[in-house]
Amino acid sequence: MPMLVRKSLRDYRRALIGWTIGICVFVGMYTSFFPQMHQNPDFYNQAAIAKYPDSLRKLMGGLENIASGTGFLQAVVYQLFVPMLFIMCAVILGNKAIAAPEESGTLELTLTLPLDRKRLVVERFAALALGLLGIAVASLAVVTILGSSVDLGVAFDRILAAHTGLYLLVLFFGTLALAVGAATGRKALAMSVAGVYAVAGYVVNALAADIEAMRWLNRLSPFYYYSEGNPLVNGFPTGDYLVLLAGTAVLVLTAVLAFDRRDVGV
């Protein structure tokens, strides 16, 4: 593994461990509620409809069929909270690539090593991608193992498909933060751009089902490519995932080019 990737991962170690535990606990806790729902499908289906007003329920992905394994997993793991939590983690890690060390001044010494600036950005991106992959694999294991112990009845390949989408989604937002940081060197700006885009993207995607005007806008939302193919039911939506991946690639390229041409630390 290239030195800088290894070093970055070592620097992220504590954050990575913390987020892995956090996300896995969150995922595990919700997954383990399933037996209760499964045993009282009518009650919980009714409750889900009764508890939340229509519009709020739509924001939460409909909450349909919450007593079935697939519907439950979609609602509690892949819909709102876990992606948002995981995106927050990705944005924070993405900021650690360039913007945070630049603001604290530690980037200057790194920059004067015999390393190409382009390589610096690429290796920091690689560390981000690997770190997030670690969290994704750990949380996938939790969903799979707990899921089978509570008889979710969702095939592993479907869970894998959904989880791959989750990984690609958070990688996109993490890379967005990295790219804004690489282009401007400003942590707060990177955080707000990624945060605003994530929230807006989510809302647009949730409302697009009902509001005609949102449909074309939805094409700009990463959540559209994440959820449209319904991977828990249909398996890998290859085309959609490639769009997410392409978006990430464009951001990496932007980050590399922007960072290569600007003054650092002024």
């Binding site: 604290s104 200057e108 010494l109 015999p114």
Partner: peptide, 21 residues
């Protein structure tokens, strides 16, 4: 040229070192 920095030793004026390392 990144290679030239391999032949230089540099002490920054405002040296920032942080972390648990």
């Amino acid at each position: 040229d990144a290679a030239v920095r391999g032949r230089i030793g540099y002490l920054p004026g405002e040296l920032a070192l942080e972390g648990r390392e």
